[in-house]
């Protein structure tokens, strides 16, 4: 690859990294690099400075905290999540999505937080975080702030991060009951951009949906938060009527463009089919448990 000329820094503390971002006009953070490096190769991205955060210690974690939240550090790789037993135990939606992110090579290097920050409408994790009501912790020269992912992505490939802020952590809030959910993606081949993908998160208690979220991938110019579809499920016992309504509203929330992966109608149809299928899968596995 022959990118444009760029400068490279590899700080060893987050403060140093933030200072470098503040001091340089056209700097980009390099974590896993699985989107940034290909874009530099194609010269779509030509940053003047790369701030490589891989030498900053203690950011590769993911953990379930005592307060019920689940935290993922900025250097936690997709593959770490794919192999994680605590993820499977606490976050069924994320566990379902982990093996479907990109391909095994990308998963080895790419990061969860980096994927959310890249804000690609094709990003799997952003849709999952939207469904889960998750947040990103951004750190800047004046300290940290939490931003909900649904507000974090401000457009295709853009976020509300300030120039001198780094996303240091993703946070999934505590479940309201038992958390369940699932992720389905239609792709022509492993590593392909999704024709469409759907993330459904359900917090259940006594057979009733206490909280729900639905995130949509690849069917609009950014990650879609299908909140009305999710609302149709809250309070229901996942009866056919509620599920059909949610599937219909999710399809309505999507705003796909026809392309060589399929027509807009087809993609909308896949969204509703996947909402139905994910919930059916959830119900099937509940029955097996019971």
């Amino acid at each position: 690859m022959f990118p444009s000329r760029f400068r490279y820094e590899a700080p060893t503390s987050i403060e140093e990294a933030i200072a470098l971002l503040g001091a340089n006009e056209d700097a980009k953070v390099l974590a896993g690099g699985q989107s940034l490096i290909p874009m530099m190769k194609l010269r779509f991205a030509n940053p003047a400075l790369l701030v490589d955060i891989n030498n900053i210690p203690d950011m590769g974690y993911h953990r379930a905290d005592a307060d019920g939240s689940f935290r993922i550090g900025a250097l936690c790789r997709h593959a770490d999540l794919e192999k994680s037993t605590i993820l499977r135990e606490h976050q069924p939606l994320l566990a379902a999505a982990a093996p479907l992110v990109a391909d095994p090579i990308v998963r080895t290097r790419g990061t969860f937080v980096g994927s959310v920050c890249h804000a690609d409408p094709q990003g799997d994790w952003a849709a999952c975080m939207v469904a889960l009501g998750g947040s990103v912790i951004a750190q800047g020269p004046n300290g940290k702030r939490a931003v909900e992912v649904k507000d974090f992505v401000s457009g295709p490939f853009t976020t509300v991060l300030a120039r001198d802020e780094i996303a240091i952590e993703g946070v999934v809030p505590k479940a309201q009951g038992t958390r369940t959910g699932g992720y389905l993606k239609l792709e022509r081949r492993v590593g392909d951009f999704a024709t469409a993908a759907v993330a459904v998160s359900l917090d259940m208690s006594g057979g009733v949906v206490k909280n729900a979220g639905i995130g949509l991938v690849g069917v609009g110019s950014q990650t879609i938060n299908a909140s009305e579809a999710a609302a149709a499920l809250i309070g229901s016992s996942l009866d056919d009527e509620a599920v059909d309504r949610a599937a219909e509203l999710a399809a309505e929330a999507s705003n796909p463009r026809g392309d060589h992966r399929g027509s807009a109608d087809y993609k909308r149809h896949i969204v509703s089919t996947f909402v139905t299928r994910i919930i059916a899968n959830v119900q099937r596995s509940e029955m097996q448990v019971a």
Binding site: R189, V190, G191, H260
Partner: peptide
């Protein structure tokens, strides 16, 4: 290779 697809061992 994002648009011109070569199948992997997975498919």
């Amino acid at each position: 290779y994002m648009d011109y697809l070569l199948p992997t061992a997975w498919e």
